[in-house]
């Protein structure tokens, strides 16, 4: 039997597949389709210090081979998430990763320390790359000094392993990755969405109410692969790879480029069963290409 296990800081995963933050809510809706215990992990929707109502609609637009979104980090706030959502996910045999967002260093610290007190959360994904909120997020994700600063603060605020989710909307991605590694990050999560825009022809105005949105889906996969391949050569902490994954072949490509685990985003909207189907197809896909385990595939294209 093919060994799909991967062991990362704080995460002993039965397989490398997890839904990406923001594309899976807190799992409830998808639990009507399949057993969430099948997933390697679940990355929860972003949590902020207080509840956020997000942007005006329209918040999504389809593009060629992908979609734009500008939800604006709508969430009930970290305390309600711990009270109402974590216990639901904890019923399943899967690792829970909490996505930590904020507008200020203090807010990031508060969210991280609050999750630290919660049972059942295995790791934090530090969201310094949301392109859809006016304040916070992206400012920490585009400046290596700020990125290192917030990583240090969150590491101090919590004992949980921290995976920093990096923004592709920068000139020098590798130096961002190195800066957060040096600041103590346990891993990287990459890539977040790429800022884009669509003009609505009937109204001749940007379609999204936020004007810009984050591009995801198959359109961004080659960008993610390239960035992971480059970062893998320069940092030694593990990478959770994401960006347009929609089948088991894509997962293998991410592993070969240097990802140790993968997250599936927009494809959950196209097909709510996608994570489950990818997990089913992964063994035969690895076998087809002569790979003996998930562990064997990691970084094989790089080294």
């Amino acid at each position: 039997m093919m060994n799909l296990e991967v062991h990362l800081p704080g995460l002993n995963l039965k397989n490398p597949v997890m839904p990406a933050s923001g594309c899976f809510g807190f799992g409830r809706e998808y639990s009507q389709f399949y057993d969430l215990g099948k997933l390697g992990a679940v990355i929860m929707k972003a949590a902020t210090g207080e509840a956020r109502l997000g942007n005006d609609t329209p918040r999504v637009a389809e593009t060629s081979s992908g979609m734009l979104n500008a939800i604006g980090l709508q969430n009930p706030g970290v305390e309600k998430i711990i009270e109402n959502e974590v216990p639901f996910l904890a019923k399943y045999d899967t690792a829970i990763i909490a996505n930590v967002a904020g507008s200020t260093l203090e807010e990031y610290e508060f969210v991280a320390s609050t999750f630290n007190e919660a049972k059942d959360v295995c790791a934090l994904e530090l969201n310094i790359s949301c392109p859809n909120v006016k304040e916070g997020g992206i400012q920490f994700g585009t400046d290596p000094y700020m990125a290192a600063k917030v990583t240090e603060k969150v590491k101090e605020a919590s004992n949980l392993p921290v995976y920093v989710k990096l923004s592709p909307n920068v000139t020098d991605f590798v130096s961002m990755a190195k800066a957060v590694e040096k600041a103590g990050a346990d891993g990287l999560s990459m890539i977040n969405t790429i800022t884009g825009m669509q003009i609505h022809l009937p109204t001749q105005k940007p379609l999204l109410s936020n004007k810009t949105g984050g591009l995801s889906g198959p359109a961004i996969k080659p960008i993610a692969i390239r960035m992971i391949y480059e970062v893998k050569q320069q940092v030694s902490i593990p990478i959770i790879g994401m960006g347009g994954i929609s089948n088991a072949e894509d997962v293998l490509e991410f592993l070969l480029a240097g990802a140790s685990a993968v997250a599936v985003g927009a494809a959950n909207f196209t097909n709510p069963f996608i994570c489950s189907e990818i997990i089913d197809n992964l063994p035969s896909t690895l076998e087809k290409y002569g790979i003996n385990s998930v562990q064997d595939a990691i970084g094989k294209a790089v080294f």
């Binding site: 899976f24 409830r28 809706e29 009507q32 609609t57 329209p58 918040r59 979104n69 709510p272």
Partner: peptide, 10 residues
């Protein structure tokens, strides 16, 4: 987006 209540698009 998802049409099932998970993504907060609508």
């Amino acid at each position: 987006g998802c049409g099932i209540g998970a993504c907060y698009a609508c």
